[in-house]
Design a protein around this nucleic acid. Structure first.
Lengths: 181, 181
DNA sequence: TGCATTTCTTTACAATTGTTATCGTTTAAT
DNA sequence: ATTAAACGATAACAATTGTAAAGAAATGCA
């Protein structure tokens, strides 16, 4: 999964701002390709990103990220294994980036941040589980309504066909759900 | 989510076997009720357990555990929050149990084990994510075939209606999938 | 062994979803 | 401003799933 905890970790990282590099990218820019090893972590200053996996030629979006979020292929970043998903911009973005090497140095030499990172990962784990439960408990319509309730900014900002795959359905089906009743 | 990493953590824990209590329970025994705070971790010596959530009166099984697995409501155990699911035996079991207090003492005083626990949690996080991807990528039939391939012992040992809810479908639908082709 | 419970299958029907395609509309880039 | 690309809605049809009910088969316990 990815890191994303608005304003929580980011503020701590400001102490190491000299290790950050500013980067501007247009929309639809690939920051990490599925199968490659993640060597960079991104902080979103402006814009939004998504992660997605290729499933038999079709793109499935697995997560969205916005201003204040930190994004990387966490497993790949941590274990040097190939990433299971791609990271891509959905809008023109301003990013701050840090290398894996610098990141690991900071973590190893700052116990406080290490603890914070572990707590952060634990929270992400918890959220991932909650999302899984939503698939077990709810049908597509219910998941869509849950998304409206819990993450209205996603509905407002992201094109629907990305949201559809994020919900595990086709864009046709999402359009039907929206225009029912 | 729950801990489960056959023979990995367990062997380390043998050093603290004097803190473990042996417990024998019949099938269908509730070890932790949804909404309660988890104060115990279980190691399965013999038998199997499941975790499940209540969804509008219907039970949805979220995970299965077997010999060598360690089981607790990890989030509840770690944060003292009410558990989101129940833990229940599916067969008569022999368990070894350790209290939250003893567990935390060991973790805090054994850096090696603390690191091991964090790695373990990271792996669980990764698995939880993989499972989520399976829901995004595959239809029920594909998920069932994936389960046969990756966890055949579950198919062999667990009644089908539990497996059905674990796959996010009804037992009727699973029966149909099995008897197609 | 016998009985009760649990488990699995099957049927019929309604509802939902996937697929493919078409067609406006909106958005973005030059 | 014009053109191309992206996006969303809709239709028709096949396939899948949920629901409710009934019954067969397997299991567990007295």
């Amino acid at each position: 999964m990815q890191m994303t905890d608005r304003n929580a970790i980011r503020t701590e990282w400001d102490k190491f701002s000299h290790l950050l590099k500013r980067q501007e990218i247009p929309a639809k820019t690939t920051l990490l390709q599925e199968g490659k090893i993640s060597k960079t972590m991104f902080f979103i200053e402006k814009g939004c990103l998504r992660t997605w996996v290729n499933n038999e030629g079709k793109e499935i979006t697995t997560q969205f990220f916005f201003e204040g979020d930190s994004v990387s292929s966490v497993e790949s970043f941590r274990t040097n294994q190939p990433s299971l998903y791609s990271i891509e911009s959905l809008e023109p973005c301003i990013l701050q980036t840090i290398s894996q090497k610098d990141f690991q140095n900071i973590i190893e030499n700052t116990p406080e941040l290490k603890t914070q990172l572990e707590d952060h990962l634990f929270k992400r784990f918890f959220q991932s589980q909650q999302l899984l439960y939503s698939f077990l408990k709810n049908n597509p319509k219910q998941r869509y309504e849950e998304l409206i309730e819990q993450h209205p900014h996603i509905i407002q900002r992201i094109p629907q066909h990305y949201i559809a795959s994020y919900l595990g359905i086709t864009s046709v089906s999402l359009s039907r759900i929206r225009n029912r009743r």
